[in-house]
Write a protein that binds this DNA or RNA. Structure first.
Lengths: 153, 153
DNA sequence: CAAGATTGTATGCTTTACTAACAAATAGGC
DNA sequence: GCCTATTTGTTAGTAAAGCATACAATCTTG
């Protein structure tokens, strides 16, 4: 009955976010939230988070990498890195070894089940990325990545 | 002594994130993290989070807005919205009133101290946004916002 | 009016992020 | 070599944010 377009004041029925719309940081936050939710749906059965996959991937690329370097590359502090590595170790996806060249460091390696999990994850990421990139041309994706890099580098 | 470029295997001394670099979602996550950290530094003395400021701003723009609409516009579920509104209410920044038009809804209004806090926050956001946008031309900012909107709309 | 949907609320769990403190190992100045 | 400072890992505690579930009150619809 009530035409939504006519509702005013108390119901604030028009959509949009008003002046917030001009805040770049706000759009980054919303976009991140949307990607985060889609990722979690895609990875529900694998039971892996974005961070966990990132760490697995990084350790796979650089066997023997130290925790501090994982944190540095993924922009996490030592404590945060610990909790993620701990969980991955508990699940048997990676193991720690004392580094031979620096006794302070823990060298990280994937286990074979960690590699299997990462292979599954990469397939999920592929479809997740396809979903995400479907709204852009290849040139736009490149431009977007480049601009985002300017923020986090 | 040891040339970093020569270190191999166990130390993985080169920088970068390898194949992860081509994952758009990963860059969104890193950029979000960088913005999040800078925001928190800028708002350390105000003791407000991004979400809290967003809610204050939205309630200021639309006095009497219901919690469910706040959540919808900021893409949060009811439970998450509750915790944020609760905290803002505890701090005396906003108040709840039963909606006259719909008894299920709580109409939200800023208190005068809430408006003061929002004014302070807007000044902080301005410098935060300046920091963020300083790496882009105005055209790039516009393009970036437009592309991010394609993700979260 | 009855049944279903919406909204707010309360509770509990998980992940991420940060701080502070401490121990072990390394690096640097003398 | 020795002493001090730094780095790295670890633990413990705090907090924000997100989500699921359940329940009550209210509204909507058949």
């Amino acid at each position: 009955m009530a035409n939504p377009a006519l509702i005013r004041d108390k119901d604030a029925a028009d959509s949009g976010i008003g002046a917030l719309d001009s805040i770049l940081g706000f759009h980054i936050r919303l976009a991140h939230g949307a990607v985060y939710r889609h990722f979690n749906e895609a990875f529900a059965e694998l039971e892996l988070t974005q961070k966990q996959v990132s760490v697995l991937w990084l350790v796979s690329d650089r066997p023997g990498i130290a925790q501090i370097d994982v944190g540095g590359r993924l922009q996490m502090d030592r404590a945060t890195t610990m909790t993620i590595v701990n969980r991955l170790q508990e699940r048997g996806y990676l193991r720690r070894e004392r580094s031979a060249s620096d006794g302070r460091k823990q060298a990280l390696y994937l286990t074979s089940s960690g590699e299997t999990a990462l292979d599954d994850a990469k397939r999920c990421i592929e479809s997740h990325e396809t979903w995400l990139k479907s709204r852009f041309t290849p040139e736009e994706v490149e431009k977007l990545v480049e601009m985002l890099s300017r923020i986090h580098d």
